[in-house]
């Protein structure tokens, strides 16, 4: 059973560069296209795309660089956003709607309102964030699609 399931798992990883605002959204665009292509329900694809885009923007705006990994199993969409720093000192504070440390460059584009992490959580069935200052952050979300 496990072997059969594993044969049906897709795993793709995409690098995300820091401060590259012009490329921000490329990964989410690819992820959305792939999920649509797999025939997953449009409302679920939309939730995954929103979460992925917010996570990608966070990597571009805040991180020293990282990657987004998409894992699609027959029942779940897993999105992992991992970076190499700087880490989040106070996750509870970062999760507060309206709290933001985004720089002016992000705000000029219409972001940095402190809505990203709460919005990712709202789109997810399971949300987990692990962070160590100076080490990096790992955000994992799961969306059920069966």
């Amino acid at each position: 059973m496990l072997t059969d399931d594993r044969e049906n798992i897709i795993e793709l990883s995409y690098p995300v560069s820091p401060n590259d605002f012009s490329a921000a959204g490329d990964v989410s665009s690819k992820v959305k296209m792939l999920l649509k292509h797999l025939g997953i329900d449009a409302a679920i694809v939309r939730r995954a795309a929103i979460a992925c885009y917010e996570a990608e923007l966070n990597l571009v705006i805040h991180s020293y660089g990282g990657s987004i990994t998409l894992i699609v199993s027959p029942k779940e969409i897993i999105i992992k956003a991992e970076d190499t720093g700087p880490g989040i000192p106070d996750i509870e504070l970062a999760m507060t709607a309206g709290y933001s440390t985004a720089p002016e460059a992000a705000r000029e584009l219409g972001f940095g309102a402190g809505m990203g992490l709460p919005n990712i959580k709202r789109c997810a069935d399971m949300f987990d964030i692990q962070s160590q200052v100076g080490q990096g952050t790992l955000l994992t979300i799961i969306i059920h699609h069966d």
Partner: peptide, 26 residues
């Protein structure tokens, strides 16, 4: 990104690429 539902018309004064990206994901 937080509040807009699908089949919604977006009106904005911003003209950068992230308006299109945002529309795409939503």
């Amino acid at each position: 990104l937080s509040f807009v539902k699908s089949h919604t018309l977006l009106l904005t004064g911003l003209t950068n690429q992230h308006v299109i990206r945002t529309a795409e994901v939503l």
